[in-house]
Amino acid sequence: MESDIPVVAICGATAGLARIGVLNDRYHTSSVAAYLGGQPGYEGQSYYRNSRAVSDGGLVTAGPQSPVQFATQTLRVLGLASDSILQAYESVFCNGDTSAYAAL
């Protein structure tokens, strides 16, 4: 990535980034490591993290099972919400913690 423009990808969109080499030198995740491993042009196996969502600079990636974590990381990278709001967001929508609604 040659600019300061954030790039975010979830599920199959990570394959597109893998094919053009964006994931070859940045920490990232996807559905499973083998999914990206089969993409031509992908050489970033050592940067793959088995996590719900991964943010590395302006790059955010997630697998299909992690839309809330993907949204949280994307909002963080874009600077659209404070850490306390994002923590409450995950508490409500991942953990079902209704007490966190007050922070939202």
Rank of each mutant, 00 (worst) to 15 (best):
A9P: 11
V54Q: 08
V77D: 04
E2R: 07
V54D: 06
R49F: 05
Q73R: 11
P64G: 05
D4R: 09
Y35Q: 04
R26M: 08
Q39R: 05
Y42H: 04
S84R: 15
D83M: 05
S51Q: 15
G79E: 07
D56T: 08
L75G: 03
G57H: 11
L36F: 00
A81D: 09
N95E: 15
S66A: 15
Q69Y: 11
Y47F: 15
P64L: 03
G41K: 00
Y27I: 03
G44A: 03
G96M: 07
S91F: 01
A100K: 14
G58F: 04
A62S: 15
D83N: 12
D25V: 00
G44W: 00
F70P: 11
Y35S: 02
A18H: 04
G96A: 05
A71G: 14
T72Q: 12
A102W: 10
S91G: 15
D56A: 09
A88E: 08
P6E: 07
T29W: 11
V22G: 00
Y27H: 13
P67R: 02
P40H: 08
T61Y: 05
R26P: 06
S84C: 04
G21F: 03
Q65T: 12
T29D: 13
Q69L: 10
Y27N: 11
I10F: 03
V8P: 00
L104T: 10
Q73H: 12
P6D: 07
G21V: 01
S91L: 02
D83T: 09
H28M: 03
S46E: 14
S51I: 01
A15H: 03
S31F: 12
A88F: 04
F93T: 11
A62W: 07
L80N: 09
G58L: 12
I20T: 01
N95W: 14
L36E: 08
A62F: 08
C11G: 06
F70T: 11
T98V: 08
I5D: 07
A100S: 14
A18L: 02
T29I: 03
V92F: 01
Q73L: 13
A88H: 10
D56M: 07
V92G: 09
Y27T: 07
V7K: 14
E43M: 04
V77A: 06
S55L: 14
A71C: 14
I85C: 06
Q69T: 10
D56W: 07
A100M: 04
S55M: 15
V60R: 01
S91V: 01
S51L: 13
I85Q: 13
S46R: 13
V77M: 06
G96W: 12
G21N: 07
